Simulated scan of single mutants.
Amino acid sequence: MGPEDIATLINAYSACRSRLLALGCSVQVLNDFEEVELLLTNAGKDVTPFFQSRFFDFNKHNGFCHVALADGNPVSFYCSQLFDTGGMDYLNYHRTQLARIYGSEFPVDPSWECPPMLKIKGKVIYSGDALNVPGYASARKSLERLALISRMNLYLGFVTWRGAIASVGLARADRVGKSLGEVYGALHTYPYATRWLNLPPDRRQNDMFLFNSARDVLYLARIEVRETGLMSEESD
């Protein structure tokens, strides 16, 4: 991405932040994942292994989490971290991660391939642990709030980690079926990301692979900036 693209991402980030403020929320960007884990746990969420400090070495430069606050209370979360697959495609890199997290007791089927994972290689932004705490605002405004911080995570990720080629994540099929894939900012969703031979207790056999290329995220940012411009014109 060139300087103009980076400027577009920054402007899109600012547009989302302004809309979040209009919803009555402030926002924090946290990079201490021990603090993030505690906040998520206190909010009633089981933190996924991909954002647990016991599995990943967070050094305050390879991950962050946006937290929206209402009246000083954390009400929405969305987190990202940077992976570098090196010479591996993301499919095999992800399998290696799962083996490290779950061990040999819970193997995946090595013959099952999620096609887009094979095409992704290099610096990858993994996003997840999305949460809306119930009881704050209407369902529509809560989803809008989560959508805003999700896109802020996307934009800040590609500004912070230059050279990242894609943003990826996993989500349960039932959540994606409720339009949460769109809320998470994912332009592409692929079903049945992983086939487990022995299913871990915290997983389901219906994970969907969510992904955007860097070009996709820039496209979203251009829409964000354009819509903000149209809104300004209409309000004059």
Rank of each mutant, 00 (worst) to 15 (best):
M88N: 13
M88L: 15
M88Q: 15
D89C: 13
D89T: 10
D89H: 15
Y90Q: 10
Y90C: 11
Y90A: 11
L91W: 06
Y93P: 03
Y93R: 00
H94Y: 15
R95D: 13
T96Y: 09
T96E: 14
T96N: 15
T96F: 07
T96V: 01
L98F: 12
L98S: 08
L98E: 03
L98T: 02
A99L: 15
A99R: 14
R100A: 14
R100I: 09
I101V: 15
Y102F: 15
Y102A: 11
G103E: 07
G103N: 08
G103C: 08
G103P: 04
S104A: 13
S104M: 05
E105L: 07
F106I: 09
P107K: 09
P107S: 01
P107W: 01
P107T: 08
V108M: 07
V108G: 01
D109S: 05
D109G: 05
P110C: 09
P110V: 03
P110L: 10
S111T: 15
S111A: 14
S111L: 13
S111N: 11
W112K: 09
W112E: 02
W112F: 14
W112L: 09
E113T: 14
E113I: 15
E113A: 15
P115R: 11
P115K: 08
P115G: 03
P115N: 04
P116I: 12
P116Q: 12
M117I: 00
M117W: 06
M117V: 10
K119H: 12
K119F: 10
K119D: 15
K119E: 15
I120R: 01
I120P: 00
I120K: 07
K121I: 00
K121A: 07
K123V: 04
K123G: 04
K123D: 10
V124T: 13
V124D: 08
I125T: 05
I125P: 06
Y126D: 03
Y126T: 03
S127F: 02
G128H: 08
G128P: 03
D129W: 01
D129Q: 13
D129H: 04
D129T: 05
D129A: 11
A130D: 11
A130R: 10
A130Q: 11
L131S: 00
N132I: 07
N132D: 11
V133K: 10
V133S: 05
V133F: 02
V133W: 02
V133R: 09
P134F: 02
P134Q: 06
G135K: 02
G135F: 10
G135V: 04
Y136K: 00
Y136F: 13
Y136Q: 03
Y136T: 04
Y136E: 09
A137C: 06
S138Y: 05
S138L: 00
R140H: 11
R140T: 12
R140Y: 10
R140M: 11
K141P: 00
K141C: 10
K141T: 01
S142T: 12
S142M: 12
S142L: 02
S142D: 08
L143W: 01
L143T: 00
E144G: 03
R145G: 04
R145H: 03
L146T: 08
A147L: 04
A147I: 02
A147C: 04
L148D: 05
L148W: 06
L148H: 08
I149C: 01
I149Q: 03
S150K: 01
S150W: 05
R151C: 09
R151L: 09
M152E: 01
M152S: 03
M152L: 05
N153E: 07
L154A: 14
L154E: 12
L154V: 02
